[in-house]
Nucleic acid binder design. Structure first.
Lengths: 339, 339
DNA sequence: TTGAAAGCGCTAACAC
DNA sequence: GTGTTAGCGCTTTCAA
């Protein structure tokens, strides 16, 4: 037998029907002990592995879930993935991670993967869907959203309070005496960017600090944009003493930009990030940032997905707390920077 | 039609046979223009997406490849993934990334995924396979190895010259006047760890420096082990002026350990890493390290896989050059550290 | 407790 | 150029 054996080969060798082999593998309790033993040794002998396509075709369920993230090169998603994968593994599911790269074609491609029944559902960590998918939302496969929000679409979601978290971050700077606080935002056409900007505004308002649009720089969570926007800020000679970036990646970009202009952190400028990625604690000085329980968020997202897949009705949203982690990148406000 | 439509539904609506629908989608040239148009509009109207399980079952090929990596939390693999994904996308393949975590059960699980025909083949970036898979190697699915090597198994491989690269790294330190150079190794029961250690030895030999086993510390590429082994080295009060770590992660661990003992880099100790990950250029001082063309390596690995899958015979190995990137973490040898 | 047999949705060989 | 049809390998009634 050089060919890959199928269930019929095993059945023949064990002297039973294919149905019995199938049962032995899926519901051993239904099969008499002796028969089961015979079947199992035939399975062993032939190295039989059931063909999952045939099973999926027959049962219409693939026990696989896709985790679609905004940008796979952001280490933030790795811990989410681990949480998702753990919960999935425990429930007998597999996880595939996909990289959306902010590209509608890629997104549709992954949605089709689910439609093709390659996967049962999809955990989204992206802030928008292509227009046509939203208007035809009725046809969307099972989806759970984690940490993001898709406009005009009500979907089971794992959330954190982004407004409150950003407010906490900025308030920390205010408490240190800063009043000229710049903000490098996330994408402002999406929930995540908007919510963190809103938290920034509220913290200023509470402190009686006027909102200055010149201090708000549009970002996209990426390191290089954080770097460039900080340079722009410096070039425009707008005075500021602190930066709140909507992601650690952008905060680190800001740090490198400040350094290249010979500014020290936190003596000249305090910097706060968002996410508490590994790199935040690695750089020197370590980054003050907002921590989110990534592993648990991942587990919860997979939990909602399983609920969505196995029970009727829409599962209830889950909400997780965030935490301000104070490290070396923030300090008391000394003098205003005007390079 | 609230149910998911199948090819029969489309055929009925278009007034053709299922075969024609199938052809229209797979080989449009074979279908008359007018028929094709009718079919396509039926497909659109019903939102038909072919069921891939059925196709896989029928064609025995899934157009999917698994990329199995040693540790998904090492950012090194992200760029590899991107290269693999690009080449795959162009050839109409999909890529799934799996996390081996040095866990035989997980590895077998992924191999089974291929056996189940969920994927056509597997790109390995792990340094060993479970014993039983190696002895039964004849039954292994199509595999390409990237950057690693599996003992007792000849498989199509994308390689770099790890011995030469490590030698280059250590020679750089020698050229700076260092003679007491410590080495934090990779896993010494695997090719990658052994090869880099070998390069270290050769560079010392060439410089007429005696090999001192006390300066060799067993590692596993992880940050935390790099940190701990450096602490151990310091605790043992063995004099050294430089460290060559077999991965950036371990080099960064070494940096944090040195810092926590108030040693400065490179004034007290020079540090060299391996991989040139993003973090290497981010930390301060930036890390001197070995660069590997990750994206191209990923593309090449997928290229070999496609060759393996579509042509007869074993594809030829590919070899890529490495490059020493000198940054701030290495400097002239001043005095020997003896804390 | 087991077997026979239908059929999941698709593709490809063959017939027209 | 297009239709008919036989399975790919499995699970799951239904019957025994």
């Amino acid at each position: 037998m050089t060919q890959k054996p199928n269930i019929r080969d095993v059945a023949k060798l064990a002297g039973v029907s294919t149905a019995t082999v199938s049962r032995t593998l899926a519901q051993p309790a239904m099969v008499k002990e002796e028969t089961r033993r015979r079947v199992m040794s035939a399975v062993e002998a032939m190295g039989f592995v059931p063909n999952s396509s045939a099973r999926v075709l027959r049962t219409q369920t693939s026990k696989t879930v896709i985790l679609l993230v905004r940008d796979i090169s952001n280490p933030f998603y790795l811990d989410i993935y681990k949480g998702v994968e753990e919960a999935a593994f425990e429930a007998g599911y597999k996880v595939l991670m996909g990289d959306a790269r902010d590209d509608d074609v890629r997104i549709e491609h992954y949605i089709d993967t689910v439609r093709e029944r390659h996967a049962d559902g999809m955990i989204l960590m992206i802030g928008h869907l292509p227009e046509k998918l939203i208007t035809g939302a009725a046809k969307l496969p099972p989806i759970v959203v984690a940490l993001e929000a898709i406009e005009n679409l009500e979907l089971p979601t794992v959330r954190v309070d982004n407004v409150a978290a950003a407010r906490k971050a900025v308030r920390h700077l205010v408490d240190l005496g800063h009043r000229r606080i710049a903000h490098i935002t996330g994408p402002l056409d999406e929930y995540l960017g908007k919510a963190r900007l809103e938290g920034y505004r509220r913290a200023l308002e509470e402190a009686g600090i006027a909102f200055d649009p010149d201090l708000v720089l549009a970002g996209d969570f990426s390191l290089v944009v954080g770097h460039n926007q900080t340079e722009r800020l410096l070039d425009r000679r707008i005075p500021f003493t602190a930066i709140f970036a909507a992601s650690d990646q952008m905060a680190i970009g800001a740090v490198t930009a400040l350094r290249s202009r010979s500014l020290t952190i936190p003596d000249n400028v305090s910097v706060v990030g968002f996410d508490d990625t590994l790199m935040a604690s690695m750089i020197d000085p370590a980054l003050t940032t907002i921590h989110q329980p990534r592993r648990e968020i991942g587990r919860a997202a997979m939990g909602l997905m399983i609920e969505r897949l196995t029970k009727a009705g829409t599962p209830a949203d889950r909400c997780f707390p965030t935490e301000l982690v104070v490290r070396g990148s923030t300090g008391p406000c000394a003098a205003t920077v005007s390079p």
